[in-house]
Amino acid sequence: MPIQYYIALASCLFCIGVVGVLTRRNAIIIFMCIELMLNAVNLLLVAFSKMSFGAHPGASEIAAGTDAQLFVFFIMVVAAAEVSVGLAIIVMMYRNIHSVDINFLNRLKN
């Protein structure tokens, strides 16, 4: 399959995530949309990795493209760290106002 298909799919997923972050009001759903963005990135990274590998046929460049796959693992680890901190913050907010609706976040404005 040409790489353009992967780019289109990942861009669509990414845009769905961005639109979700900008329009939804529930903190958990915003969070899910951010994860969707990260996973679109992971998908595209793997696709580009395969593409780079295909660009170097032969045994001499066996490591071509592996750096992108390595990056995917780093993204997964960092995303897990972010989730643990983020959910803790959301739980802390829920304990105080019994809601995860970000419309409550307007007190700082005045």
């Binding site: 969070f31 951010i34 913050i89 907010m93 105080n96 106002i97 970000i102 409550f104």
Partner: peptide, 13 residues
């Protein structure tokens, strides 16, 4: 709390 949530959502976005 609000600042943390806002910072977190904007930061990870």
């Amino acid at each position: 709390n609000e600042a943390a949530l806002k910072y977190f959502l904007m930061g990870s976005f």
